[in-house]
Amino acid sequence: MLRNYLAIDLRGIKNEYYEYAVGFGDVPGDFKGLMIAPEHLKNRKDIISKADPDVVFAQGKDLATNRKIIESIDIDVLSRPFPIDDTIAKMAQRNEKYFEICARDIIASRGYVRSKIIQSLSKTIELAVKRNIGIVLTSGASDMLETVTPRELVAFGTVLGLTYPQAKGAISSVPQSLLERRGLL
């Protein structure tokens, strides 16, 4: 018997495991998300006004880009939140930004790259927990064979350094608070 989890997969296709999902592009989902790549960060205002998304994500790149994303009022979530330092973490706390930890980043990479991603994400999580920044665990699924169940996302969170309650919060209460803040729930 599959349980119906009150969990929000903020990034991935809508599936039987989640009550809410944010879809990108043509992927159907409860809410519309927009991911801004680092090279399009300059034109973000035009892109956001054209797409009219419910939640705006921006992909991190380097320290300067991540800082720009955290300072921007249009962006809700910093995706791939590495590298970050304590100054960026402090600003993220002040501006009430969220960090997105995507399981796809780990699954799709191999060897040296995967170990560096895990190292960077663990450091980010350590800083985010210290500064009380909301962490959102997402699947990043683009088809049914990439979906991740809530229990599996919690396992990813605990392996990266979150405690079990924190990891559970990262798939339920934290994304819910983000959607509530945007007036979507």
Binding site: A103, I106, R151
Partner: peptide, 27 residues
């Protein structure tokens, strides 16, 4: 080691060159 095992299961994306998805039903 439950969480480590679950993560390892998710890292298996192919068996005999066929795309697969390990879905955890329960622990």
């Amino acid at each position: 080691a439950v969480d480590e095992v679950i993560v390892c299961m998710k890292l298996v994306t192919e068996i005999q060159e066929e795309r697969v998805n390990f879905i955890v039903k329960g622990v």
